[in-house]
């Protein structure tokens, strides 16, 4: 049951990350243009968010071995995502309008401005979502002898969620929903993930006792 719940949460987290990446690239193109560099920045920035989220998520999981702690990461991530259509326009405008209008934007800024925009908008939400997978590995892996299988399961679930996020965004969402509503829905999903985690401590409580067994050495 724990494994199933963790797998679903991690799957949905991976899904939300890639919806933000794909729809985000589309969103940025409206202001930064359809340039190659928009995709480069979006992919690069999301990977930075993932690396940070994995590292910090794993460290926090060791420190706070309660699933409810994830609410503190996911709810803010979801709230930020929900409000992207409200605050992103102004941020992007500030980035673009700092260049004098009487000459072309220097090539180096044509390359870096989209990365700046991506970071300001998408780094935090994706960072929050990325903490899910390592956190769950720590909570679900009760015995050292299972860590390989559990971490494999969580990483695979996250990646399968991301795969679904890519194709569903590109093939379905962009044709059926407004960009604003896609951000709102992804934000709502992330908040729901956070709230779910907040009330799931009881489901994961045995794990802590499992960890005790582990420390006792009886399981090893």
């Amino acid at each position: 049951m724990r494994n199933v719940a963790a797998t679903i949460l991690v799957f949905l987290g991976g899904f939300a990350i890639m919806v933000l990446e794909i729809i985000g690239a589309r969103y940025l193109a409206k202001d930064f243009g359809g340039s190659f560099y928009v995709w480069i920045s979006q992919i690069g920035v999301i990977l930075i968010a993932l690396a940070l989220g994995y590292y910090v998520g794993g460290a926090l999981a060791d420190r706070w071995r309660r699933v409810s702690f994830l609410a503190w990461l996911l709810v803010p991530a979801g709230v930020i995502t929900w409000f992207i259509p409200n605050f992103a326009g102004g941020l992007i405008d500030a980035i673009i309008s700092r260049h004098p209008t009487d000459r072309d934007i220097p090539l180096v800024w044509q390359k870096l401005d989209p990365a700046l925009g991506s970071s300001l908008i998408f780094l935090l939400p994706c960072f929050g979502l990325a903490t899910l997978a390592p956190y769950m590995i720590r909570l679900v892996a009760t015995r050292m002898s299972h860590v390989g299988k559990i971490s494999g399961l969580m990483i695979a679930a996250s990646t399968v969620g991301s795969i679904a996020g890519v194709f569903i965004s590109g093939y379905v969402l962009i044709d059926q929903m407004t960009v604003t509503n896609i951000f709102r829905a992804t934000g709502a999903l992330t908040v729901i993930l956070g709230i779910t985690c907040f009330f799931m401590d009881s489901l994961f409580v045995e794990i802590n006792s499992g960890a005790v067994h582990c420390n006792d050495g009886r399981q090893i």
Binding site: K30, F32, G33, G34, I96, T101, D104, I105, L107
Partner: peptide, 14 residues
């Protein structure tokens, strides 16, 4: 010739 995205150029030009 300006090397730029069309919409970005249009937005910035006066």
């Amino acid at each position: 010739v300006h090397i730029s995205d069309g919409r970005v150029f249009l937005r910035r030009t006066e």
